[in-house]
Simulated scan of single mutants.
Amino acid sequence: MPVTDVITDAENLTMTVIADFAAPVERLWAAYSDPRQLERFWGPPGWPATFTAWDHTVGGRAIYTMRGPRGESSTGSWEFLSIDGPSGFEVIDTFADENGEPLKDFPAMRMVFTFSETEGGSRMVNTSYFESAEALEQVVEMGAVEGTRMAMAQIDAVLQDLRDYAEGKGVQVELLDDTHVRITRLVNGPRDLVWRAHHDPELLAKWMLGPDGWEMTECVPGTEVGASHRTSWAPVGDTEGEPFGFEGEVLQFDPPRRAVTTERMQGMPTETLNDLNLYEEDGATLITLLIEYPDKDTRDMILATGMADGMESSYARLEETVLAGTRS
């Protein structure tokens, strides 16, 4: 994880984030000066950012909105005070309405980003200056410290070539906290087709087959907000076991980038929140699935079923049956 320290200083009204990267300063600067790259790590998991305005000049403004899995949103605005690439930049950061206008009763802060070389790559020091102790306390109470740590944990995938970062590693499972798990898998194929493979019944039936000896008996993907989805499997021949399946509702649907759904085993009350995000680079697509469980015990119980191994088999089948031959 890149963040090495987060320091809050009530006396000097500052919060300082220190992070180290195995990448040169120029590469770090590129990530912070390109809104499409910033979008991949500025918001914490489950709250990805979209920059809707970007005037990267002194006096210019940037506007971004982070959208939560249940449709919540938080908009912010930067006013660039200085730009000195690749050494750093300075902005006034404010909470804003949907038009980018500052919100009253929410703190603004001056943020100074400094990038420097280190023996192993580069270091970022981000110091936020607040107008009052109350403003600093308000931001901390809103989860800024933990949110920053979780957001910055996503930047390694941005600074590295995507294939260098993830190819050949299979399904990767990260426990973010007691109730959140992030699962990633790189597949060789374009994002549009990977998206279709997750939402087209005919394509789903080719790769999401369930355990060996089982077949998919029902597939109703949800393809709009408010729609229901339902998928079922049953044993074939002499295979032992009882039919099972999952169902839920679509909360967000943003092709071909993001889909958020609820999911529960048919006939069971326990529900998870599944946040699917797709990112393409050089003909490969990184699948990121953020799962929110109701509690730690449920998380551990489901992971102990061999879920990750089953997902790896399915994603390998996705590459072999749906994506084969698509890489240019």
Rank of each mutant, 00 (worst) to 15 (best):
T4M: 07
V6P: 06
T8G: 10
T8F: 07
A10C: 06
I18G: 00
A19V: 12
A23K: 05
V25D: 00
E26D: 15
A30Y: 08
D34Q: 06
A49E: 03
T52G: 03
A53E: 10
I63P: 04
Y64I: 05
Y64E: 14
Y64H: 07
G68H: 01
S74A: 08
T75A: 04
S77K: 12
S77N: 12
P86T: 08
G88L: 09
E98F: 11
E101F: 13
K104P: 08
F106V: 07
F106M: 14
G121E: 05
R123Y: 10
M124V: 09
V125G: 00
Y129T: 15
Y129F: 13
Y129C: 09
E134M: 12
A135K: 12
A135S: 15
Q138E: 15
E141W: 13
E146V: 07
G147P: 04
M150S: 06
I155D: 02
V158P: 00
D161N: 15
R163T: 12
D164Q: 13
K169T: 09
E174A: 13
E174S: 11
D178R: 10
T184N: 01
V187T: 15
G189H: 01
D192Q: 10
D200T: 14
L203S: 01
M208C: 11
G213W: 13
E215R: 15
M216E: 05
G226H: 02
W233Q: 00
E242W: 09
F244S: 01
E247H: 04
G248Y: 05
V250M: 10
Y279L: 13
D282R: 15
I291S: 01
E292A: 02
K296A: 12
K296L: 10
R299D: 04
I302N: 01
L303I: 14
T305G: 06
M307Y: 08
A308C: 07
D309N: 15
G310L: 10
M311H: 12
A316E: 15
E319P: 05
T321D: 06
L323H: 01
A324D: 14
G325E: 05
R327Q: 10
